[in-house]
Design a protein around this nucleic acid. Sequence first.
RNA 1: GCAGGUGUGGCGAAAUUGGCAGACGCACUAGCCUUAGGAGCUAGCGCCGCAAGGCAUGGGGGUUCAAGUCCCUUCACCUGCACCA
Length: 799
Amino acid sequence: MYNFKEIEKKWQKYWDENKTFKVDIDENTKKFYMLVEFPYPSGSGLHVGHTRVYTASDVQARFKKSVGYNVLFPMGWDAFGSPAEQYAIKNHIHPSEVVQKNSKVFKEQMKMLGLSVDWSREFSTTDPEYYKLTQWQFLQFYKAGLAYKAEKEINWCPNCKTGLSNEDAEGGVCERCGTKTTKKLKNQWVLRMSDYAEKLIDGLPDTQFLDKVKTAQINWIGKSVGASIKFKLDGIDDDLEVFTTRCDTLYGATFMVISPEHNLLEKYKDKISNIDEIKKYQEEARCKTEIERTDNTREKTGVLIQGIKAINPINGKLLPIWVADYVLSTYGTGAIMAVPAHDERDYAFAKKFDIDIIPVIEGGDTSKEAYVGDGVHINSDILNGMNKEDAINRMLSYIEENDIGMKKTNYRLQDWIFSRQRFWGEPIPMIHCEKCGWVPVPEEDLPVVLPNVESYEPTETGESPLANIEEFVNCKCPKCGGKATRETDTMPNWAGSSWYWLRYMDPHNKNEIANEKALKYWGQVDLYDGGMEHATRHLLYARFWNIFLHEQGLVPYSEPFLKRIAHGMILASNGEKMSKSKGNVVNPNDMINEYGADALRTYEMFIGDYSKDASWSENGLKGCSKFLDRVWNLQDRISEKEEYTKEIEILINQTIKKVSEDIETLNYNTAVSALMILLNKMDELDSISKKDYRTLIHLLNPFAPHMTEEINQICSLGKELSMSKWPTYDESKIVNETYEMVVQVNGKIRGKIEVSRETSREEMLSIAKEIDNVKAYIDGKEIINEIVVPSKLVNIVIK
RNA sequence: GCAGGUGUGGCGAAAUUGGCAGACGCACUAGCCUUAGGAGCUAGCGCCGCAAGGCAUGGGGGUUCAAGUCCCUUCACCUGCACCA
């Protein structure tokens, strides 16, 4: 047994003092940027799920360093957000104090784990020096016309009393607290992210993201190609514009539907005779939660607008206009042409309200259901006889020629609601002057620092708590010097994480994100590890942000991340999610105290496929701890020999190859198992050479860095492993001279025999036929086929 | 509904991409050692069978000398997206 407690502490101290993992730009060495999502430093400390992810990244970083890369493996804190704020509300202390305390604990735990992080690059998104630059970048968005303030119907969490972006209210549930969200009309800062929809799709082929991550992004962006068509209003000099992907069904439109939020209602309220009824419907729609509104099993509701009709531009037919909440204000133009014969939703609505259904494509039975398939167009004048594709193209040219519409691409992706009415976020650096309007805070006045306040509670009016602090709010207009007020909204949690990987490249730079040389050298993140839950949020925001910075000439690459992987979760031993409330959380500190960091690391790499969830098993951890003990105990058996021991030379070469490839392809579990196999073989020998041992511990070093350094030192096996070049294998010593030839009769194994790899096909066959058991099967039978696979097997097919 | 994924011993999993299914580990069983064992060592361990052998990778079918791997079909579970016009 080795004393892991002392040994681990010793090496952690050594790495700290010697700055073993400090990196700098080195133009002569190829770089590797290993990034793992930085944590939110919560009060509960690390969890064995975190330690799995950090260990995997660390294995990768240590390996890449050993094979000769200049590795950037940084860590920091994503510390704005709800929990620290909640804690502050309760205990009346500034959230920054909570963050400082918690991140200290996190860092200690990471050091206990033995991560090869360059701690000189550590920062928190809540550091004023950091958020100064976040604010500065917001101003760049503003100056480029990509940040605007708008009255918008937004997702609202009644519990947190704050607005939320679409991404934060996914599924109609508040991401912070789980409360069902409602809609609220609010004046918001918004980033024009939807302008980047196409770029966000176009950039994906340049990355090596996992397919499921790419697909999730593409789905979220939701590109659809169709047409916008203008319907004239009857007796009013105005149009109602709709977006449709099926302009070929225009002849089948029998009514129009607008969303309850559509501005037509306000604009022509005087012409609408049943405006009170409609107002009531609007109110109902607003009070519904997003979940209620988008439940597609719910029966359709709606109100017919009395007094306004639209005109179908293709045939001049008058169409009634309905208000219904199945049409979303946030998609397309918030209005549709309804073709009940060929759209399920329109069909359900028409059936309920007894509206005409005119089929314009042959197929299906439109008295029973909407037919959404392809087919020959009918009742469609210029389109009659055409299929869907031809009809769409014909209609597109018709509407463009006649100026009633145009080809259009629409996206589900919305602009990014960037305002939060909470205390603990970056203040949005804008000032409102009655004379000059919105004026950006001058760069030299940044950062706009979060003040100390009595109460961090959100206000009942839906304003940020900052709004109550007069000395914060009241200021002078930077433009005219007159009386002005500061914006009191803060940025969303995702702001700080939208550029943090750039900051690691040059974290102490006071004037800019990072200097050009650093940005160029470290370039793109080579491998970015994070959870699947960020595939459509953080990852989209970060890409959007980076593409923008690139367009501004501020960063050299358009795409920030080259390769994105997603890890699985660590579940409790019964397969449930670990959670405080269930009391099944495994604390890594306890495991480290009992078995050591090396054992925990090795176990978490061995537990299973890294991309999949895995159930915790303390017995499994014990097994790995035993494995490390056995590696340690080999010390008693080393000889002074300098070369590989003959019996295991091939296996050692194979293991070098296997472990190197497995780490490269993130198959950590099989890398560990290969090392176990090698150990088992060495353990059978009476003595092993120094070279045997050194190679074993070197290959094990990324997994169990402390113990292997210690062995290396006390057995004087060579240079410090963290500073040594990774072992290489000899291609000529990968295969044995002999192999076990498998002999099958009719595909069933009937014999095995050790033969030389040189054995010819003919020899293989004749050797096979001499095996007694094989003879018993083939004697007196007619052989109809003989398959020989060199270096593998012989299969004799008999009748 | 659409898109993607997964399904292999009691358990976590492997399988050179069509060539010995179950490597490695856990659990379990027997034995050794020990005053003791939540230590260590040895052996066994998919299922049926005394054995020879047979059967086995969710189910069914197919291609092939040979299928966990390829094709068709079906079931189950999981993850995205979803009244997106």
